[in-house]
């Protein structure tokens, strides 16, 4: 018996302190202002927010700290920050700014032990490991996925399901799982991938990559067995509010916070 609900998480890509592509829903004066957008999602009933810092330069990345500080002073739901988290000092800086969790991606591949050190120092609850996975199995083979870095261009030879299991064992408190095949396609999550990772780990899994319609969110939970569903464009472009999404999920019999 549990009253725990499934979470709906809007994701914002931030470059040099500005939300990339902007948003197009109502009541936003500045479509690139992360603070204003975060407040709007909070008002719509978002369960958490994820900020991915895609800034290339380290100077630009310092502005992310200010963004997090401003958001955390006004928005009182959990905030996860990913992108450029490579050292313990990066984590401390983001937590001190008001983030609740950090998402570690490339640095975990380069130094898996970083995840263990981070979880021991800050607690598993604030260490999210982000995994970008692509299907690699040939026709007729059992499904398999490999981890890719650099926006899906660079293969690592690492099996995604094994990796998720290993990261959870090292102390990751949550897995943010993105299908590189589906990301940007609006064809829905890779449900087989989501279910395979969910079955392999005892920590929550956030499904990501490919949402184009509300039914994709429901599929991620019902078929992918995800604990939380992340989406960007369907919320940014005003097609649906977070509240629309949660009402839809409730209508499909999925427990949500309304």
């Amino acid at each position: 018996m549990t009253g725990l609900v499934k979470r709906v998480i809007p994701c914002l890509d931030v470059d040099k302190g500005r939300v990339v592509k902007g948003v197009r829903f109502v009541d936003i004066v500045d479509a690139g202002d992360p603070v204003e957008i975060a407040r709007a999602y909070d008002a719509q009933g978002a369960d958490e927010l994820v900020f991915l810092d895609i800034t290339a330069s380290s100077e630009g990345r310092a502005t992310m700290v200010h963004v997090v500080e401003q958001v955390a002073a006004q928005v009182f739901i959990p905030l996860t920050v990913g992108g450029g988290i490579r050292e313990v000092t990066d984590i401390r800086r983001m937590l001190n700014a008001g983030a609740d969790k950090v998402a570690i991606n490339t640095a975990a591949i380069a130094h898996p032990d970083f995840v263990r050190v981070a979880a021991e120092r800050f607690g598993s609850q604030c260490i999210v490991v982000a995994i970008d996975a692509k299907r690699v199995a040939g026709p007729g083979d059992a499904p398999a996925w490999e981890i890719f870095t650099h926006g899906g261009r660079k293969p690592t030879g690492i099996d995604a399901v094994d990796w998720a299991r290993r990261m959870a064992a090292l102390g990751a408190g949550e897995i943010l799982l993105t299908s590189m095949d589906r990301d940007g396609t609006r064809d829905g999550y890779d449900l087989e991938l989501t279910a395979a990772v969910g079955a392999a780990v005892g920590v929550p899994v956030i499904a990501s990559g490919g949402v184009g319609e509300l039914r994709h969110l429901a599929e991620g939970i019902l078929e992918g067995r995800a604990d939380a569903v992340l989406a960007a464009s369907i919320f940014h472009y005003g097609e649906h509010t977070v509240q629309d999404a949660k009402r839809y999920l409730a209508g499909r019999g999925i427990p949500v916070r309304l």
Partner: peptide
């Protein structure tokens, strides 16, 4: 099996009245 940590929004059932529950709905998240 339930995932551990227990992470996310869950209902809080107030067992008795208290000043800190003032204005908070029973079973709120």
């Amino acid at each position: 099996p339930l995932k551990i940590p227990h992470m996310g929004w869950n209902r809080v059932h107030q067992a008795r009245p208290h000043a800190l529950w003032e204005g908070i709905a029973q079973d709120d998240y």
